[in-house]
Each structure stands twice: as C-alpha cells, then as structure tokens.
Design a protein around this nucleic acid. Structure first.
Length: 463
RNA sequence: GGCGGCGUGGCCGAGUGGUUAGGCAGGGGCCUGCAAAGCCCCGUACUCCGGUUCGAAUCCGGACGCCGCCUCCA
C-alpha cells in the first residue's frame, strides 16, 4: 500500500485508488510565459520520481500534466517582446520541454493545452450560470464561492476567515473578493474565443478542472502541484467540480518550494535562476539527487554549495558504476528493463527501500539506505566476495534506475592520444618504471583526466 | 488578524521516547611503488525555558527566531 500526505486531511494516508492497480495523476503544469526556473525543475523531478516509483511498484500509471497556453501573463509577454501570443507559447513551451527532458523527466502520458479545451470550458461555465453558481459582470463571468458548502477545504479555513484576510478588492462588481474569473471578456486586440456570454478567454482555474476530468475521468486519484497552488488554484478547481456535480480528486498532494536565501523562489519575485543556467554548470543527475535527498514537502535551497555537495555524492555512485560496470536500466522510458532477481540481500535492500518510499516517499531515507548498500558492495568486493558485491551493486543500480537516476560508468570518450598514453603507462608500470609511469599520469592529468589504477590497469575518466 | 510549516553536529539532511541515519567537508589509519578510487575509525548534534517520564532532540506547555498561504506564483 502506498501512503501519501493528503493536503486536505493534513496527514499521511493510504492512497485509496479508484481502480486498484491503476493510478491516475493530474499534475498542474506551467503557464508558458517565461523560461522554466529551478523551482519548476524540482516540481517536475518530484512528481517524475513519484510516477516512476509507482510504475516500479507495478501500478499502471496515467500521468497528465497540462500546458497553460492562454493567460494574461502570456499576453503581457507577447506585448513586451513585440510578438504574438502563439509565438510566445511556442517559444516557452519549447523551452519547457527541452529543460525537462534535460532533467531526465519522462514525458507525461498526456499534455493537454488549454486552448484545445475552450469549448468544454464554455460548456462548464454555461452549466454553472444555469445553476446560478456563477454570474456575469461587465468584464467577465465569475464563480460565486458561496455556492460550495465546504469552500475552504484545501485552504484549511472556512469561507469567513478567508474572506476576512482577503486583500482590498478593486473589482466592485464581484460579490465576494474570493469569487474568481471563469471567463474574461477580451479587450481590443486580445486573443479571444466566441462564447454566449461574450468573446473572451477562459480563467486559469477553469482549465485544469476541465482537462483533468476529460482525460482522467470523474473521481481520479491524485492531483498535485506546488504548495502555492493549494489555495486558491486547487480550491477553485475543486469548487467548480463540486458545483458541477463531478466527483473530483480523491487525494491532493503538494510539494515544497525551492528557496533563495530563505525566500521562496518565484517568477513574480524575480529571484529565480533558470533551469537552463543551472544545467549548464551542474549535472542534471546531481540536481535529481539533490531533490531526492530532501523530502518532497520540505523547502530546499539550491546553491553552489548544495549542488556541489550533490555532485560529489553522485561521483561516489558513478564510481560504483565504474567498478561494477553497471549500465542504467531506465532512462527515457519508465519501465525498469531488468531481469534482476530480487532475492536474498537484494530482496532485503528492496524491502527496506520500498518500505520508506511507500510511506510518503521518504526519498532521503531511501537514498541513505542505498548509500549503505554502496559501502556494503565495495566492502564485499574488497573482501573478495564477488557474488555478494555484484548482487548489491546491481540492486543499487536497479533501484536508482527506478527513481530515474542513471548511474554512469562511462568516464568519457577516450581519444587516440589518451588511449596511447594509458597503454604506455600500463607498460611502464609493468616494467616498474615508476618515474615514467608518473610522468605519463601527469600528462593525462594535464589533458583533463582523472587517473585511477584498477584491477584492469589504468582507467581514466573525466572529473 | 486567520491558517499552516520550520528551527538537528562545519555544511546538506532523515528520524524514533532509551540503540550508528546518510551524504559532503575535516582528522587518523588500511590498501597502493606513489597516488586516485575503495575500506575502517573519529567529532558524539538536536533554538531556549519549564513539565510528563526511570529515560525526550523525539510527548505536553510556554518563549524566541524564521518561512509561507489568505493576490499572480511550481
């Protein structure tokens, strides 16, 4: 049984699936109005890992993540860049998938785009208007939050206290400051779609409810997103579903933010580092390891110090991969291609890791267990217990593969010159010509290699 | 004001009422021709003040500090 912290109940609970063995997940995706930042990267990694783990555990996972391709901020960006909305969308959506692929994240099974769902959204809004759950103003259609009895469920507060804390509302026509736009009437020059209540565009909260229900069906299993989406975005999605009489997400899960000097990283605070910039100087696998080494609900700081720490830890894993010539068992695909036999000490490791991952994805503890196994494998190999060593190393490799972290045994392509130097050094060492061997090692180091001796002779790799 | 989270050894970061988290960095040792990699050993931490308990970093109360949501936001 998989357990996950449920944001509605504020506690870790069993994942109660609609269809046993199958997991339907909707993960709120980006508004493509800017380059993805490190926080988006964490988001993608967190849910990629959850998805992979569920697949590894044998569940049939249906993973949906949307692209918001119409929004005020996209329109603003098009204006700022003196270009069109479609061009902004094309540019930043491309940036998004490029960065996420570089992170080693598997593509979602479905990637719905809001603009392909406008007619469905209009249909939903018409229904809400018919039931008086929404009303029309001079600039659009708004949802009346008082129509949902338990509005505030995700916020963890009743409507009254939410209203008390609401900031000063500038829109006098809204019945309550908490009411939100379902439809925004187009101003001149803005992209628009025809609708019975006037040409315009859908509100952000309306997209996700329509797309998730369309692709995953009523009563789907899990809805995820950043902690900042819990309220009001998810609250409002749910409110529409409730008003429309559609059973919505059975579970809600939210991940913590990337922090910058103690403050939340955010597009609006403009304190972000783009994912592209991070990946230009950091191994993407190191970022995945950094994310794995903290709990998904905790805030993390991504700094040169923490990424360097992760890179050195990763080097230890790659070192194991080289020693045992391990090849990753999963990459682009989610299935871990392995005929690995989980038995004996491998089974013990699997059981220990599974126990902590099944319990609210305690990846830091799982990683600790895997590092213990790394040491055990090395010790066994040092002691000449080859079978045990190899079994453990393979198990570590399989489990990291299952989490999307590919161990790398390949130290870099060796050019002809370097290859010759390696051969010469082995010859010198065989002849016990140490000064010549050391000279050749220095030469290799100058060429940018890390030189190690192994049972197979000189091995070189890139640092 | 309402609601929620956090405060662990040099750094990152888990965690349970009593037993080594793990990683990185640092010190010592083994291995090695010398290194590198690997292995072993070491630091004995838990914001503060009370309380419960045979025993609390872990439970309760309080204080202080930090962060977040209530507005766009992963």
């Amino acid at each position: 049984m998989i357990r996950l912290f449920d944001s509605v109940h504020g506690e870790v609970r069993d994942l109660d699936l609609r269809d046993p063995g199958r997991v339907s997940i909707y993960s709120c995706g980006p508004t493509v109005d800017n380059v993805p930042h490190i926080g988006h990267g964490r988001q993608t990694l967190v849910w990629d890992v959850v998805r992979r783990w569920l697949v590894f555990r044998g569940f049939d996972v249906h993973f949906v993540s949307n692209i918001t391709d119409i929004d005020d901020k996209i329109i603003a960006r098009a204006s700022a860049e003196s270009t069109s909305v479609p061009q902004v969308v094309a540019k930043y959506e491309n940036e998004w998938w490029t960065a996420m692929t570089a992170l080693g994240a598997a593509m979602p099974d479905d990637t719905p785009h809001a603009t392909n769902y406008v007619s469905d959204m209009i249909e939903l809004i018409v229904g809400l208007l018919e039931r008086d759950d929404a009303y029309i103003t001079s600039d659009g259609v708004y949802f009346d939050v008082t129509c949902v009895d338990d509005y505030g469920l995700l916020a963890g507060q009743p409507l009254d206290s939410l209203r008390a804390g609401a900031r000063v509302e500038t829109n006098e026509e809204k019945h309550s400051p908490l009411d939100f736009a379902l439809w925004k009437l187009a101003k001149p020059g803005e992209p628009s779609w025809p609708a019975p209540f006037g040409d315009g565009r859908p509100g952000w909260h309306t997209e996700c409810v329509v797309m998730s229900l369309d692709l995953l069906g009523d009563d789907f299993d899990l809805h995820t997103g950043g902690l900042d989406l819990k309220f009001p975005h998810h609250e409002n999605e749910r409110a529409q579903a409730v008003a429309a009489g559609r059973p919505f997400a059975r579970h809600w899960a939210h991940h913590g933010w990337v922090m910058v000097g103690g403050e939340k990283m955010s597009s609006s605070l403009n304190n972000f580092t783009s994912l592209k910039d991070l990946l230009a100087k950091t191994d993407a696998r190191a970022y995945r390891l950094l994310v794995l080494r903290s709990h998904y609900r905790s805030p993390i700081e991504v700094t040169p110090a923490t990424t360097a720490d992760a890179e050195r830890a990763l080097a230890r894993l790659d070192s194991l991969a080289r020693r045992f010539e391990l090849a990753p068992l999963a990459g682009e695909t989610l299935e871990v291609a392995s005929d690995f036999r989980w038995a004996g000490i491998a089974q013990d490791l699997f059981d220990a890791v599974a126990e902590v991952l099944d319990d609210d994805m305690n990846t830091p503890l799982a990683v600790a267990l895997l590092f213990d196994a790394v040491a055990a494998a090395n010790t066994a190999a040092d002691d000449g217990n080859d079978d045990e060593a190899r079994t453990l190393a393979n198990a570590v490799n399989a489990l990291f593969s299952g989490l999307g972290l590919a161990l790398n045994s390949h130290g870099g392509d060796v050019d002809v010159t370097s290859g010759q130097l390696v051969a010469q050094r082995d010859a010198a060492r065989a002849a016990k010509d140490w000064s010549e061997a050391d000279r050749l090692r220095d030469e290799l180091v100058t060429l940018g290699w890390v030189v190690e001796d192994s049972a197979r002779g000189t091995v070189i790799r890139r640092p």
